[in-house]
Amino acid sequence: MTVAHTLLGLLEAGPRHGYDLKRSYDERFGHDRPLHYGQVYSTLARLLKNGLVEVEAEPGAGPERKKYAITDAGVSDVAGWLAVPEKPEPYLQSTLYTKVVLALLTGYDANDVLDTQRSEHLRLMRELTRRRDGGDLADQLVCDHALFHLEADLRWLELTAARMQQLAAQVRA
């Protein structure tokens, strides 16, 4: 899930309190949808249960006083998420954007994220192209619609790739 991976990725910079983590998430990714505290803590509880984060002890403190740290398992979980392409579907850009920014933050190759995604998109486009060229007019129109959407995603992806240095400078500032 995107939020869980994003919180994990943000923890790679160092242990944080839940409210600190929420603020940092909202700043970077929450423009149109800031996280609720409830969601932050329930996500962290789940990550804790799965061994992806651990709590740095502050004895007797309530959840808002706990400091969370990413575990080794958490680090590989983020890397795994970044390495696997998203299923090509509409409105993907917010997830992809998040992945690119997190990759830049965690030192993972952000271009790899885009290349892997391009490859996945093209795979589907090849399939649709074959289906379209072998189909009747109805197939052609349906496939074309899907192809134009995937193409739009890829244009955005290329533009992002072209602006990677700029984005890296901003993200790391």
Binding site: D115, M125, L147
Partner: peptide, 28 residues
């Protein structure tokens, strides 16, 4: 080609960036 719809006629793609080709093994 820089057009994805044209590239969709290929069997594979190789991405050139800064005079280098991204290793194909990495492409899933």
């Amino acid at each position: 080609t820089h057009e994805p719809r044209v590239a969709a006629y290929s069997d594979h793609e190789a991405v050139v960036r800064d005079g280098r080709v991204r290793a194909r093994e990495h492409v899933r």
